[in-house]
Design a protein around this nucleic acid. Structure first.
Lengths: 344, 344
DNA sequence: CTGAAAGCGCTAACAG
DNA sequence: CTGTTAGCGCTTTCAG
């Protein structure tokens, strides 16, 4: 059916090996033979079969990128950054959206193992139940880099990075307290026992205390169905039903915030007049929102750079010793969604 | 390195053929042998090598999905819809974001050919310069389905669908004229000679005339750099510099509208008090925006369904006769971004 | 029901 | 510089 190097070899009157070499230009081949082969290949409409190449060479030149939700601008911005970095290095991306579904998440990881991706970058919901697969990646010598790696990975050998939200959260709380807020809620949509969000609570707690606020678990409003927009919208009511005195909210991610704003608006509240809001991630939604969102910013570009460099570094140097984890800083960007609370 | 069926065969004391059969469950294999093989495979941590499977069987079980911009919710919503439909049918998606870059677009298409995708769904910038590749897909018996197929595909054999914007645009113009608008601009960010947008102009023109408005090319404001958000933002000023009497704008896509709103807001204009705005695509941004956008809605779900059904239909039935093109209707959804123009 | 043998399209020693 | 030979890991006839 499709034309192969054998077809080219036949019409060129040479061996398929020569064709293979001529087409890729590495080896020493006489100029005329090369040109002739290339001409014939073009005439015949030859396309190399990558699946064959992969099998033979054991390299797929592809990096799997596992993300929870392509609808979330944070993840697509990250993906685009990764893509820009990879394409110059000759790697193709194999992006997978597991849509906040743990079953799909696991399947996707297994799929990457079976597809023999050269490497993998993954933003996981929960680290814990995937330890076995992560170990398998390591054993198969497929470097995998995990975004939002929890503090305690135990003896599971993985690379990764983690946001240090302590700074950003502290700045956020101080900013709000400075404006006069006392009733601040941290709201978001995450899985009950997600590791990442857990980390933030300690920072939160510390930040609250250091700013002279009393801490209690009521300060956290979690609502999870897997749909960030809907969860955000629903949260508006939930928060004010339980804590009617709330004057400021920290939203766990920008997509959730979009939903939250919708919910608040529907309740007749406006931002920042009735309630102050701080987003997290600082995606285009935060920047372009009619009332631009004050946000705790993650540096997507740095994350992507670290991820790609670490991954390709491992790939190209075959270093399999220590696993790396980088900590990145977060920072508060003040815009217009925060203001002094309504008095009285 | 990795464990193969030969390794399993050896420890199971059988042939690799039997192992292959036992593992997939299709062929007739005695229950005990099958169980034994499966147990050993699990113990050894066997993972089938998909690249080998692909090469041997000639099927990759993957559908390439080529899209211009993952940052645009319209495209990711489509992608997620396609994914939902494909996963039940046993196909994996291979999504590629060509980031509005014609060079990357072409490369990606070639890559799918070389990766031997079973099929392909593509939303292209311009049809014209890709005719040769589209023909190649057809010749290679790789069904490809093009979103936003132009009216005139000549003799290039491709499947596709196209939005019929005439209805939506007519409704939009009538809606605006009904509210009292006379100075309506169609604004967007598209490549100079993109085929799709061209279609809309005729509808536009007809719709303008039928509503008793005078038509001229000044009614169209095109600004293209490839970044929808930035283009939208910049367009606000451009539009009012040229046409200060504008009272309503039709935005070519939702991401562009987000930018446009930003630009308008920066100029101190509010929606719909100072200017009415109608979006296109009706993504979550339109629905969740603080002032929910009146939108010309494309039915993403229908598009995805048609795309997947047509593609898999071809794949499974090996029908290579007539190429199909479906026309889908658009419809105006009225929300809060449109109102009567300021009098005087 | 099971095994032996062939080969998917390509790359990579190893000889010439 | 070029050709011969041998697989990569798997599926698939074709005989037992």
């Amino acid at each position: 059916m499709a034309v192969t190097i054998y077809d080219i070899a036949k019409t060129a009157g040479t061996s398929h090996t020569t064709v293979s070499r001529a087409l890729r230009g590495n080896a020493k081949i006489s100029v005329e033979v090369r040109r002739n082969v290339q001409r014939i290949a073009a005439e015949l409409g030859y396309r190399p079969d990558r699946t064959a190449r992969m099998l033979k060479s054991g390299k797929t030149h592809s990096i799997g990128v596992l993300l929870p939700d392509f609808a979330n601008p944070f993840h697509t911005e990250f993906l685009q950054a990764v893509q820009r970095l990879c394409q110059d290095r000759g790697y193709h991306l194999f992006p997978v959206d597991y849509r906040n579904d743990e079953k799909l998440e696991r399947q996707a990881l297994e799929h990457m193992l079976e597809r023999r991706c050269d490497g993998c970058i993954a933003s996981l919901m929960r680290f814990e139940p995937l330890r076995d697969l992560l170990q398998e990646f390591w054993d198969s010598r497929i470097p995998i880099l995990v975004a939002g790696l929890p503090e305690d990975v135990g003896n599971t050998p993985v690379d990764g990075y983690r946001e240090d939200f302590s700074v950003g959260i502290r700045q956020a709380i101080e900013h709000l307290v400075g404006l006069g807020h006392r009733e601040i809620i941290f709201a978001g949509s995450w899985h009950e026992d997600a590791g990442v969000a857990g980390d933030r609570f300690e920072f939160l707690q510390a930040a609250y205390r250091d700013s002279g606020l009393t801490w209690s678990h009521d300060r956290i409003a979690r609502h999870w169905t897997g749909d960030q927009l809907a969860d955000g919208k629903a949260s508006a009511r939930i928060i004010f039903d339980k804590q009617p005195n709330t004057t400021a909210i920290l939203g766990a991610n920008d997509l959730f915030c979009v939903g939250l704003i919708r919910g608040l608006t529907d309740m007749g509240m406006s931002i920042p007049a009735d309630v102050s809001l701080i987003g997290t991630d600082d995606t285009w939604t935060a920047r372009y929102w009619p009332t631009p969102l004050t946000s705790i910013s993650q540096d997507t570009e740095s994350q992507a750079t670290f991820a790609v460099e670490t991954l390709l570094g491992r790939l190209e140097s075959h270093q399999w010793q220590p696993s790396q984890c980088m900590t990145l800083n977060s920072e508060l960007i003040i815009r217009e969604s925060t203001a002094a609370p309504r008095t009285g």
